[in-house]
Design a protein around this nucleic acid. Structure first.
Lengths: 210, 210, 210, 210
DNA sequence: GATGAATGAGCCTTCATTCAT
DNA sequence: CATGAATGAAGGCTCATTCAT
């Protein structure tokens, strides 16, 4: 994890700059940014970009996995530091939402549902890690009577994925404000209540996202 | 006004087929489907497609306005037929969601927030009509104590826009099921409750969407 | 020449309007105006345009021959009404230049040098008629000692063709002024003078234009 | 300033070949040659063509400026090497005409009067340089009593522009011969003579071409 | 390794021409 | 006959990707 050679340092830096650039551009302009623009923004040549990521798909994958790392870190911390499951969930949604808003495009791969990524082993692995944490939190919160019993971790991740996708062309401040509000509203909707409306459709399970 | 039917019939049919095809394809693959594919799916040549819609933007606009028409119709009927405002809202969200799921691309024009469409007069007009209806319903439902007082029609439309955007590459059945569930959850979140979490960010008003 | 039926009148009118429209548009925007634009300017549908001229080439030919008619008329009148050959030539150049400037695109086909028209029998016929008149005038003027002996009718028509081609994008008033000046200068250059510079290149003969 | 040769060499070569190809093709077929044909003739792919010239206009501009360079070089040499102004003018017209005949498309930019190029700063700059040289020569020749006093450098360049525009579809040898002859005739027309016809239209000045 | 040039397939759009009404 | 809709072949331009330097 930190056993890389001298030259690797440059390469690693390049890699990070490329991912950051791709991240930002995808957030701003959608997933079809020209590779050349990514390269330019990252301050490298296309040649270098392609050395690091042999094609567009690899780049998207890189951005996705990078985002996953961060989201998982948020989930872990939330679980570790919050004794109360509902508080942990709530913190996770808020922090990840904030993180994702910054990092943006991540959401789209959040639940790993993109066809292109669905069968990627690394992606599956991270998805499982994340969903396992969320599943634990949701179950505990349900046991505490804090979360309605007809929803699950899959719902949580899918809602976040739906809400957090970048909305290009919309005034950025509006999206930001909106996402904040609707994540809160969504959390509120997840809470256990005697008068909750019953949910339609067969439940969405973790298996559905596998 | 009465002397343009017969021949127009073909053209009109073509127009409708093109919009339907574009609608479906945008839902499936996002807004940058090849024009040629739209034409093929509509069963016409690209020439015809371009005769009807002189460029991609005009096509998107056509799809958007067509969807708007339908959504407004749903909103009107809901308002007319449901005496209870909350019931009307609820019915609107469910029906429009259903309509939209099929028709998909709607979300993008729902709140009319796309830069390319924002200043289109026809689009503004329809947006205003729709938001006026929703605003009435929301206020009435708030007066009835059914909807929390810190949300408005702008929130409703924006949430729908966020949730209903097409999710290319995701298993269609999953999106469908998910959207159903989350619209319900969202409605639930909108309800007035003593223990509701307070919403962050300044309120989003109708003016924000203008 | 005027023995046409009632219906023919419409058709003839259409034909003339089409030619006028094509003439104007070619003058303004060059020879590749869209057929549809010609139709629109002529106030007919493309269907009608194509009924009258089965393809673009036929249309150009129509415009060209129409121009030829007019130029020949000018030449005839000049020859008939001016006893002095040099005066006739001079009048012809001035009038045809004026006519052409108005009618513009004509020049390009003036000497019939367009590949596409070169072998058209009607075009050949008119070219011969025109060149025969000019040849007569030039020879007479040369006999009068008014025109240098190393130029001929072919030179005259070619110079006019070169000078009178429409110059799209140039300020219209400049072209007009320029053409006026340079036709005059050109005429001046044609005059017989003891100190005239000798002309390079083998002489260009009527046969060259055949 | 010295660290961009080797690799640049290929690119530079390509650039030159592209300009040469465009030059030739524009001369032969007018300014709307298919870009692909230019690329083919230059021996490169369309991608390369577009990398060098991002659109058709840039290509035309490139051809124009390249021609300007050459014509200015001819003008400078003529002025430098010919003590007599009239001889210099005459040499310039002949050489530039020869150059242009080969290089053809020049005329279009000669007086810089093309709308698309009119406001291009580089083009203006070169136009000014050229016209300044010609203006000097014309004035000197007028002072020598060799050139009629009612013409100027603007006339000279405009006549050349008119005469030298490519004449697509005309037998190449004819154009060549014709242009030679008519440039000579034109020069002859410019000469000061007691019996010269008076020129119509207000004089065309350098300012008109600015 | 990094750079930036070259390639070529793909998509958008235009327009000449044909044809149904 | 006139109309205007439909067709489909070009041609412009944009990248993703490969490669020479």
């Amino acid at each position: 994890m930190n056993s890389d050679r001298k030259l690797r340092a440059d390469a690693q830096l390049n890699r990070e700059q490329i991912i950051a650039a791709a991240h930002a551009l995808i957030a701003e302009h959608g997933a079809d940014v020209p590779m050349e623009e990514v390269a330019r923004r990252a301050g490298v040549s296309t040649g270098t970009l392609y050395r690091r990521f042999p094609n567009r798909h690899a780049l998207i994958r890189g951005v996705a996995l990078d985002g996953f790392h961060r989201v998982i870190a948020i989930a872990r911390t939330a679980e570790d530091e919050e004794p109360d499951a509902w508080a942990a969930l709530s913190r996770f949604v808020r922090q990840a939402g904030g993180e994702l808003r910054l990092a943006a495009g991540l959401a789209m791969r959040f639940a790993g549902t993109w066809a292109t990524l669905r069968d990627d082993p690394e992606n599956r692995r991270m998805r499982e890690i994340l969903l396992k944490i969320l599943d634990r939190l949701v179950r505990r919160a349900q046991a505490d009577g804090k979360v309605r019993s007809d929803v699950g971790a899959a719902d949580l991740s899918m809602m976040m994925a739906l809400l957090l996708r970048p909305m290009p062309d919309l005034r950025a401040d509006l999206t930001q404000a909106g996402v904040d509000r609707y994540l809160t509203l969504m959390l509120d909707g997840l809470r256990a209540r005697p008068d909750a409306a019953s949910l339609p459709s067969p439940e969405i399970t973790l298996a559905d996202l596998a």
